[in-house]
Simulated assay, not measured.
Amino acid sequence: MIVLLSNDDGIHAPGLKALAESLQELGELYIVAPDRERSATGHGITVHRPLRLEMVNMHGLKARAWAVDGTPADCVKLAVEDLLPGPPALVVAGINQGPNLGTDVLYSGTVSAAIEGIINGLPALAISLASYGDHDFTRAAEVARKVVGLTIEKGLPRGTLLNINVPVAEPRGVRFTRLGNRRYVNIFHKRTDPRGRIYYWMAGEPLDLEDNGNDTDVQAIRENFISITPIQLDLTDYRSLSVFRQQWKEINFIF
């Protein structure tokens, strides 16, 4: 069984190493990850320059690994189309340093690596440790191993990935959740360089909005539950689609 790992924190990230260590006995492990941190790149792909890669010795791991000078989506795409000897049974992205909750999934390179997996018709998982400061990935790696085992046993609906977030504190249990609603405030820090030119540094603090009920990933992490959210590619708003078909049925564009 071939298992493909990737991330957005880079090939040498401790979260990726912890993930690989937890899964290396499950099958033939391949790692294709960015050569540097590519956080918040979303689902960008590289089309205006060539991609370059090199093999990396992952000391102590039973895995073949490549570092790619591109995005997480590039890595999975390249792995599936050229580097691997056959289709992987599973694509696992992570372990991300920091949570991927709610609207974070639209920006996350880690989630995008998993999305590239399901674009290619492969089961996929994204896993994140909900902390930027804690570097102990032991519990998150254990969660990853258990979820991967269940995924192999039970399968996933085609076109669906699981987005997993693990709290830093001892988990109170597991919740299957929907995406919460959060946005970022104080996003730009305005500064002046030594030559007097203004520049902006993007940062921001998450603001969890009021409609985050007990069934959301945001609330689950807040209450120290492991959050597992099924995500699909289809962004169609089917309720609105029905409304437009009824209320706009007489519209006639002439070009």
Rank of each mutant, 00 (worst) to 15 (best):
G60I: 08
T138N: 02
L241V: 08
Y199F: 15
L5H: 09
K190W: 06
R245E: 14
A114L: 03
L150Y: 07
Y107G: 05
N252C: 06
N100V: 13
M58V: 11
I11P: 01
A93V: 03
I254T: 12
G60V: 07
G213D: 13
G42Q: 07
A130C: 09
S22G: 10
P88R: 02
L241W: 08
G27T: 09
V243C: 00
D134K: 13
N96P: 00
A220S: 09
Y107D: 06
D211W: 15
R175W: 06
L129Q: 11
A89M: 13
S242R: 15
G117H: 10
Q246V: 09
R158W: 12
E21K: 15
L84K: 05
E37S: 14
K62A: 12
K62W: 05
N186L: 13
G121C: 03
N100F: 10
S242W: 12
V148K: 01
R49N: 02
T110L: 05
R239H: 12
V76L: 06
W248R: 14
G149N: 11
G70C: 08
L19N: 06
V91M: 07
A63K: 07
F255Y: 07
T41R: 14
A220H: 07
G44H: 14
Q24P: 00
I127R: 03
N214H: 03
Q97M: 06
S6D: 01
G86Y: 04
L4S: 06
R222N: 13
P194R: 10
D136S: 03
Y107Q: 04
G86H: 05
H43D: 13
D74Q: 02
E153N: 04
S22T: 09
G117L: 11
G102Q: 06
G44F: 12
R172K: 15
L51E: 10
A113Y: 06
A220Y: 07
E142V: 00
F244P: 01
G196Y: 02
S131W: 07
E170T: 13
G159I: 12
I115C: 00
E37T: 15
A65T: 03
L233S: 09
G121D: 02
L5A: 09
N163I: 01
M55Y: 05
N181R: 13
A144T: 01
R183F: 14
V148I: 06
V3M: 13
M202F: 00
P206N: 07
F137M: 07
N57H: 11
I127D: 02
E81I: 00
V185H: 11
V174W: 06
H43I: 11
V92K: 04
I95D: 02
D104T: 04
V68E: 03
I187Q: 12
H135L: 14
W248T: 12
G102S: 12
S242A: 15
D237W: 02
F137N: 04
R49Q: 14
K146H: 13
G86D: 14
I198L: 12
G149E: 15
M55P: 00
G204V: 01
L235C: 05
V47K: 10
V174A: 05
P50N: 09
L23Y: 09
R139W: 03
L101Y: 05
V185D: 11
V80R: 10
C75K: 10
R139Y: 08
Q232A: 13
R197C: 03
T229F: 07
P88A: 08
L161T: 04
L233R: 04
R239V: 14
T216M: 10
G27Q: 14
I127Q: 04
H135F: 14
D74R: 10
S108R: 08
